[in-house]
Design a binder for these strands. Structure first.
Lengths: 230, 230
DNA sequence: GCAAAAGTGTTCTCGGTACACCCATGC
DNA sequence: GCATGGGTGTACCGAGAACACTTTTGC
C-alpha cells in the first residue's frame, strides 16, 4: 500500500434535499448562504461529516438542525465528487433526500448552518450554489421512482387528509395529471387507507372525507415482500 | 465556516463490482488481497481516489487496471461510510458496478492492485474483506432493477448469442425461472434483436439461431424516452 | 433411434385507461 | 341559485401467465 497520508486530505459533506408538500405544490427547503463561497446564493442545507460520525448520522444531524424533526424518512441518493466542485479543496458530497410534513415543522430552527431558510417550489427551480441544482434534480428523480415502491403520503401529508390531497401529491411528484376515479379505485384497493368517517369543515363546497394511513397494514405487507405500486 | 483543516483528513476510495456472465452463471471479479488489512482474503477491486481525479474516472481507472477494458457500462450505486469500516482510518468508499463480456477479456492484467484475480459465482458468495459483501449485495440489487430499464445483454453477452443464452442471463440476474415461449415473445416484440440467419455449430442437438443487438434501434428508442422493460 | 435442446400459439385473467354526471356545502 | 370541488361505475383493451408438442442435430 502506498504512503497513505497522501490520500487522507479530502473532506466529505452531506447535502440534504428536504421535500415537503403544501396544498398542491412539492417544495424543497433551501438556505441562503451567509458565508463564502457562493455567499447570498441559495443552496442545499449540508455540512461536513465529522471524523467520528457515520454518513447517515451526519445527514440526520443536518436535518435535525434545519427542521427540528427526528424520525423522518431519509435516503441516500448519489455521491458527487467532481474535482473542482468546491472552491476550498477536494470536497465530496453525499446527497440525501428526506420527506417531512410541512406543518409539523412550525418555524425554522436557529442554526449555525444558515440564517435564512425557506421553502421553494420544485417546479420553479433557480440556480443554486455549487452543483446543488444537479443534486436536487438527482434527488427529485429518485423520489419519482421511490413513490412507486413506498407510500410517501405517510411522510408528506398531515395525519388526516383527503383523497384529492393525496392525488395532488402524486401529481406533483410524478409531474402528470391523474384520472380521479381511477386514482381512487387503485389507492383504495390497496387497503392502506382508513376512512375516518369525518369530513372537512368550512370549505365552500361539498366537504371531503378524511382518511389516514394504516401503518400496521403497510408493515404487514412489506414484511411479506409486498410491493406497493401506484 | 470552521477551521477547514479539521475536515480534510479523510480518504475516499472506489470499489468496483465487475459482473460477467458465463454460460448460465452470473459472476463477479474478486481479488485476493496481498496486503494488510485482510491479507489473503477475497475482496472487491478498488483503490484510493487521487486528489485531482473525478470519482467516475477513478472507477474507470480501477476497471481498466483489472480488466484491460475501456468503454464498458459503469454505474455508481451507493456510498459506504461507517466510521469503523476501514482499520487504517476514515475511509469512505463509493461503490460502482460494471458489466463486461467475459470472453473479451482473455487474461488478467498485471496489476499493482492484486496478483490473483478470479471470477466467482454471485450465487455462492463467501465472506469478503471489509464491508465488501454488503457492497456486492447492494450492487447486485441495483443490477436486478437496472435490468428492467436497460438491455444489459448488450454488455454481458458476446456479439452473437442465442435466445436461450439471453434467457439464462435474465434468469441468473433476476434469480427466477422464466417461461421460454413468453420470454421469446416479449423480447422479440421489442425489435431490438437482429436475426443473423446463422446457427450454432457442433452442438449435440438442434442448433439454435444466433442473434445480435441492434444498437441503433435501441438508441433511437431511448432518444424518444422509450422505457425498456422485460 | 435416442438424447438434448430449439422452436412454436392459444386461451384466460387481470389491471390500466377512458369517460360524464349528480351531490353537498358556503355564500 | 350558483359556484366549487366531492364522489361514483362501466366498458374496452392489451399485457402477462399458463401450458405441450414437434423439430433438428450429434452420437
Amino acid at each position: 500500500m502506498p504512503v497513505l497520508d497522501n490520500f487522507f486530505k479530502s473532506a466529505f459533506t452531506v447535502d440534504n434535499v428536504i421535500f415537503g408538500f403544501d396544498e398542491a405544490d412539492l417544495k424543497v427547503l433551501l438556505i441562503k448562504r451567509n458565508e463564502e463561497p457562493y455567499k447570498d446564493m441559495l443552496g442545499l442545507p449540508g455540512y461536513f461529516v465529522y471524523q467520528n460520525e457515520d454518513l447517515d448520522s451526519a445527514a440526520y444531524r443536518v436535518l435535525m438542525e434545519i427542521t427540528g424533526l427526528r424520525h423522518v424518512y431519509l435516503e441516500q441518493v448519489e455521491t458527487f465528487g467532481k474535482v473542482d466542485r468546491h472552491p476550498s479543496g477536494r470536497v465530496i458530497t453525499v446527497a440525501y433526500f428526506s420527506l417531512v410534513k410541512i406543518d409539523e415543522y412550525n418555524q425554522f430552527q436557529p442554526s449555525s448552518i444558515a440564517e435564512e431558510i425557506s421553502w421553494h417550489s420544485v417546479s420553479k427551480l433557480k440556480n443554486l450554489a455549487f452543483d446543488h441544482k444537479d443534486i436536487l434534480l438527482a434527488c427529485f428523480n429518485r423520489l419519482k421512482r421511490r413513490v412507486r415502491t413506498y407510500p410517501v403520503g405517510f411522510e408528506l401529508l398531515p395525519p388526516k387528509f383527503t383523497l384529492t390531497e393525496l392525488q395532488h401529491l402524486y401529481e406533483a411528484i410524478l409531474e402528470v395529471t391523474l384520472d380521479k376515479r381511477n386514482f381512487r379505485k387503485k389507492i383504495l384497493s390497496m387497503n392502506l387507507l382508513v376512512d375516518l368517517k369525518e369530513t372537512q369543515e368550512g370549505v365552500a363546497h361539498r366537504p371531503a372525507r378524511l382518511y389516514k394511513f394504516d401503518k400496521q397494514k403497510y408493515e404487514a405487507f412489506t414484511a411479506n415482500g409486498y410491493n406497493f405500486e401506484l
